[in-house]
Design a binder for these strands. Structure first.
Length: 961
RNA sequence: GCCCGGAUGGCGGAAUUGGUAGACGCGCCAGACUCAAAAUCUGGUUAUCGCAAGGUAGUGCAGGUUCAAUUCCUGUUCCGGGCACCA
């Protein structure tokens, strides 16, 4: 009886499906465990082998937990709104709902192929009205709430209105500069004014923000649609444009997002990334008065974390886009300033920060140092961003490397305020120096000077200590079609929320997916929509994905996003597996939404994910063919389809093969014997690497026949082959993507080797957290392992070989050692070593010729999370009736694993030279005596006495000479 | 540029707490079975010197701590991920 994986896998998938084997109840006496995968976007390209890595890991863990007696929730769904579907709609006129539906079906089939234990009854799709109804509903909660800083929590906006009504704004931190009013004043404000003020407090609010505006395309572009300042499609210029935008006031949650990190089990790297993203810093805002020709602007505000360096300020740098720059520019500098502002407008933030070339421009105005009246030139430069702090910094070249380079570049004299700590060549950011050239601060250690300066500034009324965050409020609107409509109507410039009973506000059909007027979204093209004065923006991709883990708990609820009783049962996600690319986006947004819903009493926990495991990326291993071409050096010889093998190319590039030799070999290939010889003068042979589909390459060897059929233009391809008559490809490790032809489709591998082999091989590749290149070659080893395992039960010739014989100690020892290793490794997500442990176990049982049911059935249970189909099949063939999905994880009988002695490595000066079998309970003295008797040790000692003998129980012995 | 990771045989990787570097698998080499091939099985496989016994070097690179370093510390190079409208 053969291992017929195709039949077995089909059969068991059908049975599990029929029996609803993966259905999960919200009501169970067993402890709950919630395993979550990151929400996939159903792309048209379908799955490649990189996608399922995390899903397989979580699937194994979910199955493992089920065997351990937990009620396990392991759902799957789709983050189905998004730009690619909309782009596809623009290009092909197909409604995004239609293409998305197709993509989802394709995805689902691919996922099912791999045999995941998803409870499909709980599937969610963010683009379904039944789902986005609740995204809109949560948005309304955000809109109707404010963050009460005193209570450190979100509250209904009504509580704020009450405060304003009764006490005015004094007790509430002002959101807008200089906006302070009394209760009487509030009550006298007209409706629009009040709404304008409340808008400054709402957790979801409207403001103005810059977008990438492409005039030629008449649309707003995503960052990755902009390359080097022009649109990716068409290469049109892109500039910044201010548009009305929705935002989420995530900055109010900055501190709680930081504190929450202490309660969750994320990697230190992940916590660090989030901490840095939030970027909390303690500093001061200082107002400097300005001296300019026109005198229109009297002061500027800078944010600094180092007020102690106030006497070392040699220049100011202001973000060029701040609106008061042109007002302070002197007549002589005005033109240059305008030109520089124009230049910066064309630059993305990323480019500005990454730019190595120092650029900037003097404004012609000066700031006055409040302590000594010194005139400080005000510059503008792209390295200062408007969005951080006040958009203006103090340039302290002796203490900051970037400031120092700026000063050197523009020949601005440097004031040394740190004495010997500054060498004139390099800035020194120390806080330990005693200040010099610093007036009343001379001799004070910098660290201590900070509070002295802050005190003085406050006394003078020109500065306040200030906590600052690098994180900005999250832009929450897109000028797009394929997203959730905002449940907001605008009347006379005031935003009104729709009634709850009006939800969902359905996304209307449109005739065209092209943008609306003035950079508005496509919804602005619909007269009925505009008539109803509905918001024309839609929500961004992360709207639906910020709360989906809650919907899985109670996916069909029509009266709430999730029943409180149900979320109380499932509570936090116990294990979340996903890539680090979501470190600061999705993970922060969903943590914020969870905190808001917690504050408002809709759920009972404020951190969504208890534990996070980051999966690495599977990279593609690209293959290249090399097309030969003659440069235009005065020749009319055209080679269209000559491909040179990688080995020949290598010799050519290294110079081992001359251009003439290569030319004549190619000529021979093209023309046969009657080849005209000689490279035309001035001509050069170029070998262009071209990506070739990895699926027609075996290792590095190209299937030349398949290549000729691959694309019509290669039909007549000629190949310059290696000596042994094969064509070798070049290779490189790159991101896996369709355009690089390096994607490998899991369906094909599943078809060829089965889902069980595929699952185990993905895990066997290496640690789940680590990125690694895909290589299909090794999959056969895993497949061989499963067949070897099968042979413990059934033999092709002999049929059944398993027996009911009683097992002996050596067999028990092997199986219990395997169980223990497997359990430990699975528990710590070390799935690759888990697979190895199984292989070792099967190798050892084969060596022992162990075919005993009582041993083998334990093996099947620990195998089941990794390779569920074969495990279930053999489980039943052994005569078990229930499903192995619900078997109990076998317990280890320690008695079989007790050892009395160990082979110790005996090292001389730390280098292993011998091995000795020593009893585990041996004492230091016994060991020393034994070791000194050892021949190898004697040889190395050469008659001398050892300096020391180190004996670490159960580890090693080291003889120091 | 800034933040976070990673680097070990021909390849993927193992070494869980500082204690036998290279488990397991691929590939390769040799052998068995076979008319032959496939499949399967057995043995070998870091480099280098040596007939062997055995020695020497070795975990990106340069240093350091230690009886002992892939593991800890300092510096450095290269590669990957993210940087706010891809999801």
């Amino acid at each position: 009886m053969e291992y017929d994986f195709r039949k077995i896998e089909k059969q068991w998938q059908d049975i599990w499906n029929r029996d609803h084997a993966y259905r999960v109840s919200n009501d169970s006496p067993r402890p709950k465990y919630y395993v979550l995968d990151m929400f996939p976007y159903p792309s048209g390209a379908g799955l490649h082998v990189g996608h399922p890595l995390g899903y397989i890991a979580s699937d194994i863990y979910a199955r493992f937990k089920r065997l351990k007696g937990f009620n396990v929730l392991h759902p799957m769904g789709y983050d189905a709104f998004g730009l690619p579907a909309e782009q596809y709609a623009i290009e092909h006129g197909i409604h995004p709902a239609v293409s998305t539906q197709q993509n989802i079906e394709n995805f689902r089939n691919q996922l099912n192929n791999i045999g995941f234990c998803f409870d499909w009854d709980r599937e969610v799709r963010t683009c379904e009205p039944s789902y986005y109804k609740w995204t809109q509903w949560i948005f309304l909660q955000l809109f109707k709430s404010w963050y009460n800083r005193a209570a450190k929590r979100a509250e209904s906006i009504e509580t704020l209105v009450d405060i304003f009504k009764n006490q005015g704004s004094h007790s509430v931190a002002p959101q807008r500069k200089n906006l302070v009013f009394s209760a009487q004043e509030w009550n006298a404000f007209d409706h629009a004014t009040r709404e304008g003020i409340l808008m400054d407090y709402r957790l979801a609010y409207c403001g103005f923000g810059e977008v990438n505006w492409c005039e030629a395309l008449g649309t707003v572009l995503a960052n990755d649609e902009v390359v080097n300042g022009v649109s990716e499609r068409g290469g049109h210029p892109v500039v910044k444009k201010k548009l009305r935008q929705w935002y989420l006031r995530i900055t109010e949650y900055a501190d709680r997002l930081l504190e929450g990190l202490e309660q969750v089990d994320f990697s230190d790297a992940m916590k660090e990334m989030q901490t840095n993203w939030i970027g909390k810093s303690y500093g001061a805002e200082i107002d400097f008065s300005i001296k300019s020709e026109k005198g229109e602007v009297d002061s500027m505000r800078v944010y600094t974390t180092r007020p102690d360096t106030i006497f070392g300020v040699d220049f100011m740098v202001v973000a060029p886009e701040l609106d008061w720059i042109e007002a302070i520019a002197s007549a002589g500098q005005f033109e240059e300033v305008s030109r520089y502002i124009g230049y910066v407008r064309s630059r993305s933030e990323r480019e500005r920060q990454a730019e190595k070339k120092i650029s900037g421009c003097f404004t012609g105005a000066y700031a006055i140092n409040p302590f000594n009246g010194r005139e400080i030139p005000i510059w503008i430069s792209e390295y200062v961003l408007a969005g951080y702090g006040t958009g203006a910094i103090m340039g302290v070249p002796c203490g900051d490397e970037r400031d120092f380079r700026f000063a050197s570049h523009f020949h601005i004299p440097v004031t040394n305020i740190i004495g010997d700590f500054f060498n004139g060549e390099q800035a020194n950011p120390t806080k330990d120096a005693r200040l010099t050239n610093s007036d009343f601060l001379n001799g004070v250690v910098m660290r201590d000077a900070i509070s002295i300066v802050n005190g003085k500034l406050e006394e003078m009324g020109i500065g306040t200590p200030k906590v600052n965050y690098r994180m900005r409020d999250a832009a929450f609107s897109r000028q797009r079609y394929w997203g959730e409509p905002f449940p907001i109507a605008w009347r006379q410039g005031v935003a009104y929320p729709l009634e709850e009973k009006e939800l969902p506000l359905l996304l209307p059909e449109v005739d065209t997916y092209s943008p609306g007027p003035e950079g508005e979204g496509p919804l602005a093209n619909i007269p009925q929509w505009v008539e109803r004065e509905l918001e024309t923006n839609t929500m961004p991709g992360y709207a639906g994905s910020s709360w989906y883990f809650l919907r899985y708990m109670d996916p069909h609820n029509e009266t709430a996003f999730c029943d409180r009783k149900v979320s109380d049962y499932w509570n936090q996600v116990d294990l979340y597996i996903g890539g680090t690319e979501h470190a600061v986006g999705h993970l922060l947004y969903s943590r914020m939404w969870t905190k808001v819903l917690f504050d408002l009493g809709y759920i009972g926990f404020e951190e969504p994910f208890k534990k996070l495991v980051n999966q690495g990326m599977i990279q593609g291993s690209s293959r290249f063919v090399y097309r030969a071409q003659l440069s235009a050096g005065g020749t009319d010889i055209k080679w269209d389809n000559i491909f040179v093998s990688a080995g020949i190319r290598e010799r050519f590039e290294k110079g081992d093969l001359s251009p003439e030799q290569l030319f004549s070999r190619i000529n021979l290939l093209v023309h046969g014997d009657s080849a005209p010889a000689g490279l035309p003068p001035g001509a050069e042979i170029l070998l262009h690497p071209l990506h070739v589909d990895v699926n027609i390459v075996d290792g590095f060897q190209l299937d030349t026949k398949a290549f000729s059929k691959w694309k019509p233009e290669y039909a007549n391809a000629l190949f310059l082959l290696e000596q042994d008559g094969i064509y070798l490809c070049g290779s490189e490790v790159e991101k896996m993507s369709k355009s690089k032809f390096n994607t490998v489709n899991p369906d094909e591998l599943v078809g060829k080797y089965g889902a069980d082999t595929f699952r185990m091989y993905e895990m066997f590749l290496g640690p789940v957290e680590q990125s690694k290149p895909w290589d299909t070659k090794g999959i056969e080893g895993v497949h061989r392992f499963l067949r070897k395992l099968w042979r413990l039960f059934y033999d092709e010739q002999k049929g059944q070989v398993w027996t009911l014989d009683k097992a002996g100690a050596p067999e028990w020892k092997v199986i219990y050692r395997t169980i223990r290793k497997m359990e430990e490794d699975t528990e710590r997500f070390s799935f690759n070593t888990g697979v190895s442990a199984l292989m070792i176990g099967v190798n050892e049982l084969s060596d022992l010729k162990c075919h005993k049911k009582e041993v083998l059935e334990k093996l099947l249970v620990i195998l089941a999370p990794y390779a569920p189909h074969i495990a279930e099949e053999l489980w039943h063939l052994l005569g078990n009736s229930g499903s192995i999905l619900d078997a109990a994880y076998p317990a280890v009988e320690e008695i079989y694993l007790v050892e009395s002695a160990k082979n110790y490595p005996i090292a001389i000066n730390g280098k292993t030279r011998a091995e000795m079998n020593i009893a585990l309970d041996a004492t230091q003295l016994q060991v020393e005596a034994m070791v000194l008797e050892n021949e190898t040790v004697k040889k190395w000692l050469d008659g001398k006495a050892p300096k020391k003998i180190i004996y670490v129980k159960n580890k090693m012995v080291n003889v120091v000479i």
